[in-house]
Design a binder for these strands. Structure first.
Length: 421
RNA sequence: GUGGGCGUAGUUCAAUGGUCAGAGCACUGGAUUGUGGUUCCAGGUGUUGGGGGUUCGAGUCCCCUCGCCCACCCCA
């Protein structure tokens, strides 16, 4: 504990280990299963990219690129960065590999670590994991709805309840400037009454005033123009269609015109899934449309939409939702005597080949301590193998769950366990 | 970057400024020889995060530093 000489993980970076790792594996498996049933195929872009990929897509003046990126020079002096999010890399991959030549829409998923140099807090880390999906080539609100539906499907399969879906449309280059002007106009005569942060936001990113938590600001923005009232005809009908599809699919949600997304590339649909049970960082998944990004990356004009799920936050919720038992060995082989140790190894191998998780006892410790260890591991069956068993060819089995035990011929052990386990 | 809280055994925590810093859990062994959990007995560990200061005396008070947690900011 006197740790100055012992290495520790870096601030904001954590080991994911048992028993949590089982929740991660299960969650990732369910994601793979469900996403693939919607036609999403996994891709694995590198974790490091040219810095420009992120600055151009996420936005030069966002906090992420301004102060949160892990940016380095490589040996040749190129500026490279650890990815702070997944979409930019996937778009780069899509363009670089000319994936638009494949039949649209093309749908991809990814999973892995992201990096942001932030001050850690509950639900926020410097290395954190996201599972995300991106669909390219469909401008239709049906695709938006399908994504939301898939997300709900996934979260439902994990047993999560009481999640809050919020959707919004932030318009397109045709209609957003007008809204921005309206917002600036609304606040222009009351800038002084806003909090210092919001005064800064007024110049930087006025939309952010809409989700300020300061009470006075909440009060001041009553009656502020809503983005949804300023949508152009195309954006409006896209959004209305989406909302009616969500109704049809039975996805309960809130339309929240004050919902703001942090990344610059979003157009039209944005959405967020939040939970009451997470602390301040309560967004577990979020996403939206980015119809201009592919073109900006040098590809053909291609609409796209995606979302990302914050794994740590998701796992937190899964842990809260129910008790989760880590897996336990199916069989524990306790041995007494040298010959039994050898026989035990052979038996263990045989059972493992059948796919069972088998542990063996410490060759030199007493049967009692081996039994105790088996119990602590919560092993399904203990097989006791000693001189008597080797002589008689019959092995003792014991099941902790109901404290039953019995005898079985050595040759039949495998079938016996497989049938019961 | 800003603010608040907390650092004592592997872990969770205790200890009016005053003997040798304790307890639960965990771990190991044992309670008639080859049977776990419950019970009983026995066993060990700390540079009290680090450094300095005040004091006859500091885990306790003060300063610095490092680390963790939470919140702001921002975001998954």
């Amino acid at each position: 504990m006197s740790g100055s000489e012992r290495y520790k993980a870096l601030k904001g970076m954590h080991d994911i280990m048992p028993p949590d790792i089982y929740l991660w594996q299960r969650t990732e498996g369910i994601a793979r299963e469900i996403f693939s049933s919607y036609g999403f195929q996994e891709i694995r872009p590198p974790v490091v990219e040219s810095t420009g990929i992120f600055t151009r897509s996420i936005g030069e003046n966002t906090d992420i690129v301004e102060k949160e990126m892990y940016t380095f020079s490589d040996k040749a002096g190129r500026s490279i960065s650890l990815r702070p999010e997944g979409t930019a890399s996937v778009v780069r991959c899509y363009v670089e590999n000319n994936l638009h030549t494949l039949p649209a829409p093309q749908k991809f998923s990814y999973a892995g670590p992201m990096f942001r140099y932030e001050r850690p807090q509950s639900g926020r880390f410097r290395q954190f994991y996201q599972i995300g999906v991106e669909a390219f080539g469909s401008p239709h609100p049906e695709t938006d709805a399908e994504l939301l539906s898939m997300l709900r499907h996934f979260l439902g399969r994990l047993g999560l309840r009481s999640l809050h879906f919020q959707v919004n449309s932030i318009g397109c280059p045709a209609c957003r400037p007008a809204y921005r002007e309206a917002l600036l106009g609304f606040f222009s005569d009351r800038i002084e009454t806003l909090c210092p942060d919001c005064r800064r936001r007024y110049g930087q990113n006025p939309l952010r005033i809409l989700d300020c938590k300061v009470e006075r600001c909440v009060e001041m923005r009553k009656g502020a123009p809503a983005v949804t009232d300023y949508l152009c005809q195309d954006c409006r009908s896209h959004f209305e269609r989406l909302c009616s599809l969500l109704e049809l699919l039975g996805i309960s949600h809130t339309v929240n015109p004050e919902m703001v997304r942090g990344l610059d590339y979003y157009t039209r649909t944005t959405f967020e899934v939040t939970s009451e049970n997470l602390g301040a960082q309560n967004t577990v998944a979020a996403g939206g449309r980015y119809d201009r990004l592919v073109k900006e990356f040098g590809g053909p004009d291609t609409p796209a939409i995606g979302f990302a799920i914050g794994m740590e936050r998701l796992i937190d919720l899964i842990k809260l939702s129910a008790e989760h038992r880590p897996p336990a060995p199916e069989v524990f082989i306790a041995t007494i005597g040298e010959q039994a140790v050898t026989e035990g190894m052979l038996l263990a191998e045989k059972l493992r080949i059948s796919g069972l998780w088998v542990e063996t006892g410490d060759p030199v410790s007493s049967l009692k301590s081996q039994m105790r260890r088996a119990d602590r591991l919560a092993a399904g069956y203990v097989l006791v193998l000693g001189e008597d068993e080797i002589r008689s060819g019959k092995i003792q089995w014991k099941r902790f769950a109901d404290s039953t035990q019995g005898e079985i011929g050595l040759s039949g052990v495998c079938d016996f366990i497989l049938n019961k386990a």
